[in-house]
Computed example of a mutant assay.
Amino acid sequence: MALAERYHRAGGDESVYAIQQEAGPDAAPLLILRTTHTDADHSLFEKQRDSVVSYLTRFERLSTSEGYLMDVFGGDGSLLHRLDARS
């Protein structure tokens, strides 16, 4: 949650209440987002994805040179999106 708080202080989307970064396969990080939203609206996902990845690369020194994976879980705990953006 501390990562999400730093993201919010930088102007990030308040509906994202937790961001977790883990080692993924092939040197690509796995990003896990938890949001208050409960629907799988694709345009909302794209906006959150771009905002979070931009923040992490600019301020948290995330390397996306090998791409990344992202799972987004909704307010009810359901998986809303799964993205494989590996190069």
Rank of each mutant, 00 (worst) to 15 (best):
Met1Gly: 12
Met1Phe: 04
Met1Arg: 09
Met1Thr: 03
Leu3Asp: 04
Leu3Phe: 07
Ala4His: 06
Ala4Ile: 08
Arg6Tyr: 06
Tyr7Asn: 02
His8Met: 00
Ala10Phe: 08
Gly11Phe: 04
Gly12Lys: 02
Gly12His: 06
Gly12Trp: 01
Asp13Pro: 01
Asp13Gln: 10
Asp13Glu: 10
Glu14Phe: 00
Ser15Arg: 14
Val16Cys: 07
Val16Ala: 01
Val16Ile: 15
Ala18Phe: 01
Ala18Tyr: 11
Ile19Cys: 08
Gln20Ile: 06
Gln20Glu: 14
Gln21Phe: 04
Gln21Met: 13
Glu22Val: 02
Glu22Ala: 13
Glu22Tyr: 13
Ala23Ile: 10
Gly24Glu: 07
Pro25Gly: 13
Pro25Asn: 07
Pro25Arg: 09
Asp26Gly: 03
Ala27Ser: 10
Ala28Val: 08
Leu30His: 15
Leu30Thr: 12
Leu30Gly: 03
Leu31Phe: 10
Ile32Phe: 06
Ile32Tyr: 04
Ile32Trp: 05
Leu33Val: 04
Leu33Ala: 05
Leu33Glu: 03
Leu33Thr: 06
Arg34Ala: 02
Arg34Phe: 14
Arg34Ile: 09
Thr35Pro: 11
His37Thr: 09
His37Ala: 15
His37Ser: 12
Thr38Ile: 11
Asp39Lys: 05
Asp39Tyr: 06
Ala40Cys: 08
Ala40Asp: 15
Asp41Pro: 07
Asp41Val: 05
Asp41Thr: 03
Asp41Gln: 06
Asp41Cys: 08
Asp41Arg: 00
Asp41Tyr: 03
Asp41His: 06
Asp41Trp: 02
His42Thr: 09
Ser43Ala: 13
Ser43Thr: 13
Ser43Val: 12
Glu46Met: 12
Glu46Gln: 14
Lys47Val: 07
Lys47Thr: 15
Lys47Pro: 01
Gln48Lys: 15
Gln48His: 12
Arg49Thr: 03
Asp50Met: 07
Ser51Val: 01
Ser51Ile: 04
Ser51Thr: 01
Ser51His: 07
Ser51Cys: 09
Val52Trp: 11
Val52Thr: 15
Val53Ala: 08
Val53Arg: 00
Tyr55Leu: 08
Leu56His: 02
Leu56Asp: 03
Thr57Val: 14
Thr57Tyr: 05
Thr57Asp: 05
Thr57Pro: 03
Thr57Leu: 09
Arg58Trp: 02
Glu60Val: 03
Arg61Gln: 12
Leu62Tyr: 03
Leu62Val: 08
Ser63Phe: 04
Ser63Leu: 05
Ser63Pro: 03
Thr64Lys: 03
Thr64Gln: 09
Ser65Asn: 14
Glu66Ala: 14
Glu66Leu: 04
Gly67Phe: 02
Gly67Glu: 13
Tyr68Asp: 11
Tyr68Thr: 01
Tyr68Pro: 05
Tyr68Lys: 00
Met70Tyr: 07
Asp71Ala: 05
Val72Cys: 15
Phe73Met: 01
Phe73Lys: 00
Gly75Met: 01
Asp76Tyr: 00
Gly77Lys: 06
Gly77Ser: 01
Leu79Ile: 05
Leu80Phe: 09
Leu80Ile: 04
Leu80Gln: 09
His81Ala: 10
Arg82Phe: 10
Arg82Thr: 13
Arg82Gln: 11
Arg82Cys: 11
Arg82Tyr: 11
Leu83Lys: 14
Asp84Asn: 15
Asp84Ser: 10
Arg86Met: 14
Arg86Ala: 07
Arg86Phe: 11
Ser87Pro: 15
Ser87Thr: 13
